[in-house]
Design a protein around this nucleic acid. Structure first.
Length: 571
RNA sequence: CGGGGAGUAGCGCAGCCUGGUAGCGCACCUGCCUUGGGAGCAGGGGGUCGCAAGUUCGAAUCUUGUCUCCCCGACCA
């Protein structure tokens, strides 16, 4: 492709509304443009990368035995009402009506639609296992879209759904997808980890997320340094350390702590480590106040708590709600004589002689102890694990914290949707059975964005070759020099003939402009043709990822580029 | 939805407090010049100041309403 006949609107200045590198660079490199909040135009360069990821995904899905279909983006309300998600999904589901006032929504995912296909067409156990997938535009009316393609409202997703006669079959399907995903992200040149995850609103009973490691990631993940345990913090179990402290209970003491509300302030003021304090939070679980006790330095895991309480909605109580529920002032809450349900984290069970609020403004209690000073009815794992915690799976392992971007998610669904939509089949004995399902998603645009998060420098993007918009950029330094342009034309043609995807920068621009643009858009291989070296019959090859510039004869350059491309695509 | 901020040329911003001429840098167009890391000179085009109502002789500027966007929290590929 000749640059002068293409469309790559690069910009020098970073648009003010971009926050993370991938978003900034995709805008600057002319890959995407925003149309509305969380809704983007894909310009040629961006689209090429997206198509590359799609091809890799398609190849690996097909290799794993999945079959491509395409479902509609606009889907009828009835299907969603059958699964009850019409009510459950909330505002993220963008609902609309047609001219006859029939209700529809833009598909945020397609369990209902695909299950509808299967319940109509699949009658016999002989038709399974079956795995159907599509690569299609989804719409979720996110509360807060951000970070460009990382969290759009409209986004391209590959979603696959497996159908099996029993759980063993479903496990095999899950494992196949898991392995396919590993291959996909490896081929995209990403540093990633598969981690145990919560199932969220999709539901089901088991799932893994594929996380690209990046500091800008929105998810916190932990991994063990001793075994292969890795999990999203939302899901990560904390190791149950049984009542470790048998310290003698000291007499309780009420201390004056004027104006000291936060755990940090109180522990500094009293000179007692935060690990010897217990904090009490109040949550509204389906509008019922519940008090939560955690060690001072621990964070509440709302997902775990939600499961323990079995509630639908969980939010932090407002100051007024707290005052009303406990009768105590915010900042000085304590579990003594609790009026509301009290749930304590497992860690709290082993703690003795702790600092807690005195339920009275400007006072805390020192050396408070369970049973003697307060009564806790329920203990549960309700905290986020922290860096340095012991591994819940092996002995001696320590958990390490990472940030990650979720690019893929595999779920073992079970019968949630097949039961709701009545997707059944007849087994060998002619008995009606419910289909076992799994579902598997990959964010295509997000994968490209995550890749940029992981591969960039001050000058721009450094694309791994398999998903780069072009393999090679050929820059003619002064295209008005006829020898230069004739040589560049020839090399361009030869590389293309060899199957290399070439962007030929034939613009009459100064070299600085061309180099800046080449670096910005991140093409892996750059071949510069300039009068000086051409006098010796040489051209210059430089890899965007670094390394020395190679001065090569034209034939050698063509051969070298061709082999570098083959090598990079060989995985 | 709660909290914070912003809407002025394609992009980045100033002007607003103290009402009267809409401005700068980049980008764009023409010409000259230049060709190894976002050159230089000269000339030029482009803005209902988010929208609506109000105050005023007069509103980008003051008032009210409204919409959109961005950032911080709960959702998710």
């Amino acid at each position: 492709m000749r640059y002068t006949q293409y469309f790559i609107p690069t910009v020098k200045e970073t648009p003010a509304d971009a926050e993370v590198v991938s978003h900034k660079l995709m805008l600057r490199a002319g890959m995407v443009r925003k149309v509305a909040a969380g809704i983007y135009n894909y310009l040629p360069l961006g689209l090429r990368s997206i198509r590359k990821v799609e091809s890799i995904v398609r190849e690996e899905m097909n290799r794993a035995g999945a079959i491509e279909i395409l479902m509609p983006m606009v889907t009828p309300a009835e299907l969603w009402q059958e699964s009850r998600r019409w009510e459950q999904y909330g505002k993220e589901l963008l609902r609309l009506k047609d001219r006859k006032d029939n209700e529809f929504c833009l598909g945020p995912t397609h369990e209902e639609v695909v299950t509808d296909i299967v319940r109509r067409e699949v009658r016999s156990y002989r038709q399974m296992p079956l795995n159907l997938y599509q690569i299609q535009t989804k719409f979720r009316d996110e509360i807060r879209p951000r970070f460009g393609l990382m969290r759009g409202r409209e986004f391209i997703m590959k979603d696959a759904y497996s159908f099996d006669v029993d759980e063993q079959g479903a496990d095999i399907a899950y494992e196949k997808m898991y392995q396919a995903y590993r291959r996909i992200f490896a081929r995209c040149g990403l540093k990633f980890r598969a981690v145990e995850a919560d199932t969220g609103s999709i539901g089901g009973n088991w799932s893994h997320e594929f996380m690209v490691l990046a500091d800008s990631g929105e998810d916190a993940i932990v991994s063990c340094n001793g075994c292969d345990y890795a999990a999203n913090v939302e899901k990560a179990e904390s190791k149950v350390v049984e009542a470790a402290e048998h310290a003698e209970a000291r007499p309780m003491e009420k201390v004056h702590t004027p104006g000291k509300k936060s755990i940090q302030e109180v522990s500094e003021f009293l000179g007692i480590p935060v690990t010897h304090t217990v904090k009490m939070l109040v949550c509204m679980a389906d509008n019922v106040p519940v008090a939560v006790l955690l060690r001072g330095d621990h964070d509440l895991n709302e997902i775990k708590l939600k499961k323990v309480l079995g509630c639908e909605e969980l939010e932090m109580a407002t100051d007024e709600q707290i005052a009303k529920a406990t009768g105590a002032p915010v900042g000085y809450l304590g579990p003594q004589e609790a009026r509301i349900r009290l749930v304590a984290d497992l860690t709290v069970r082993g703690m003795r002689n702790v600092v807690v609020g005195a339920n009275e403004t400007d006072y805390h209690l020192k050396n408070a102890n369970p049973d003697r000073d307060y009564v806790i009815g329920e203990y549960a794992d309700i905290r986020n694990v922290a860096h340095g915690d012991p591994c819940p799976r092996c002995s001696g392992g320590i958990l390490e914290m990472w940030r990650g971007i979720e690019v893929g998610h595999v779920f073992k669904l079970g019968m949630k949707y097949s039961k709701a939509l009545n997707a059944t089949f007849l087994d060998q004995d002619g008995k009606e059975q419910i289909v076992f399902m799994g579902c598997y998603g990959i964010g295509i645009g997000r994968t490209v964005a995550a890749c940029i998060e992981q591969n960039h420098d001050d000058n721009g993007i450094i694309f791994p070759l398999p998903i780069a918009p072009f393999h090679c950029i050929v820059s003619a330094v002064n295209p008005k020099d006829e020898t230069v342009s004739a040589t560049a034309d020839e090399i361009y043609a030869r590389l293309q003939a060899a199957g290399v995807e070439v962007l030929y920068d034939d613009r009459d621009e100064r070299p600085g402009v061309k180099f800046k643009d080449a670096d910005l858009i991140g093409i892996p291989l750059r071949l510069v043709i300039g009068a000086k070296n051409l006098a010796d019959g040489k051209v210059e090859l430089k890899q965007r990822s670094g390394g020395e510039m190679e001065l090569l004869a034209i034939d050698d350059a063509v051969a070298r580029i061709t082999s570098l491309v083959r090598e990079a695509l060989a995985l």
